[in-house]
Computed example of a mutant assay.
Amino acid sequence: MAHTIAAFRRILASSSSTIVSSPHSSLFARFNSTLTSPKLFISGLSRLTTDEKLKEAFAPFGSLVEAKVIVDRACGRSKGFGFVTYNTIEEAEKAREGMNAKFLDGWVIFVDPAKPREYKPPQQEQQPSNTGGYTTNKTIGWCG
């Protein structure tokens, strides 16, 4: 009985190591992918990164639908993140594995699955408060 248990342990140990080190481990990882859409969220972008530079960096992994750096409306400067969209989830997974924690324009970027946009109900305009003849402005913004 002890011999059978030891043999069983050897079989389990050898099979688990072959799954991890097999050349098909990327295929195994693809089935366990957390991606549900071919859209990726790219964070840690340099302020100098443009749409074109982002497209050039991610083009080797598949056919791109869109590469967009998000910019501040007031300043026109990059907010430090963007989105890349591929035709298929497999291409997006390759790009995620290939570009995560890599340098782009001197900065380390991080590639994650993009989350779907949440619906935000439109805000109602607030009436300015009138206290003693003074009006207060509650709009605060900074772009520096």
Rank of each mutant, 00 (worst) to 15 (best):
S16K: 14
L35K: 06
T34F: 06
F103Y: 11
F31I: 11
S16F: 09
P23V: 11
C143P: 00
E93M: 07
W107P: 02
L45I: 06
T4Q: 15
T50W: 15
K115N: 10
S15D: 02
P60T: 15
G44A: 03
K120V: 10
N137E: 01
S46M: 14
K68I: 01
R9A: 14
L104D: 04
C75G: 09
F8K: 10
F28T: 10
V20Q: 14
S17H: 05
E56W: 02
A114C: 15
T36C: 11
K39T: 13
D105L: 12
V20K: 15
R47F: 13
V20G: 04
K53F: 10
T139F: 10
V111C: 07
G106S: 13
D112F: 11
A114F: 04
L48F: 12
E90L: 08
I70P: 00
F28Y: 11
G144S: 11
F61E: 06
D72L: 08
I140M: 08
V84F: 04
Y86A: 07
F8P: 00
K68S: 02
G98Q: 02
P23A: 12
K55I: 03
D105I: 12
P23S: 14
E93T: 04
S26T: 11
L27C: 09
H24M: 07
R9W: 09
A29F: 08
C75R: 11
E66V: 06
T139I: 14
L35D: 02
L27S: 15
T136W: 03
Q126W: 02
N100T: 10
G76C: 08
G98W: 03
T34W: 03
E56V: 03
S25Y: 14
F103S: 12
I109R: 04
S43T: 15
M1Y: 03
L54Q: 01
D105G: 09
P113L: 14
K94G: 04
T18D: 15
E56L: 05
I42W: 00
S129E: 12
A7S: 08
T136C: 05
K55S: 09
A101G: 04
P60F: 13
D105C: 15
R73I: 09
R30V: 02
T136D: 01
E125F: 01
T136M: 05
S37G: 08
T36N: 13
I42L: 03
S14R: 07
D105E: 15
R73P: 06
I89W: 00
E118G: 08
A13L: 05
H24W: 08
L35H: 01
C75V: 06
V108Q: 15
T49A: 05
S17Y: 02
G106F: 12
F28H: 12
H24I: 07
F28E: 09
S78D: 00
T135A: 01
Y86Q: 07
L12I: 14
Q123C: 06
V111E: 00
N100V: 07
G62C: 05
V65C: 08
I11L: 14
